[in-house]
Amino acid sequence: MNLSKFFKNTFLVMLACLVLSACATKKVQNQMQGDVYTGTDTVEYLASGVPDRVFFATNESVLTTASRDTLRKQAEWLRKNSKINVVLEGHADERGTREYNLALGERRANAAKDYLMTYGISGNRISVISYGKERPVDSGSNPLAWSKNRRSVTVKAN
């Protein structure tokens, strides 16, 4: 009897641990889908409801559904504010060689530029610069920090 009670208690404690750890994992995953950042704590806004940046998976320059949504909002805002030009700043995380990351940042910023252009924004209004891994927003050395740093940021040029 005592023994079964012991087992029962142990089981309850273990169950509690599982639930807690699941919560902890879920909290991180809430800010990442796969290894793409989906959180908002580093995001700034060009205008109300117009986020300034999109995020990428490791080694990728493919735009996610969320990124395309953000860029459509930016395109709409740029159509309304036709005198504003922008610079797209492409970035990579710190887990790659410097020179390759410069090229990767350029590729990411251009993926965003191409998308803005398909939504009617003239290429003359958009310039592109890559910072590679030189300008992280989060100086941490962990997957979440890296996901925030793999980004293309749209910045007003004038």
């Binding site: 320059s61 590729r107 993926a111």
Partner: peptide, 8 residues
Amino acid sequence: SFAMDGNS
């Protein structure tokens, strides 16, 4: 390297 339009 020279990078333009996303290609180096």
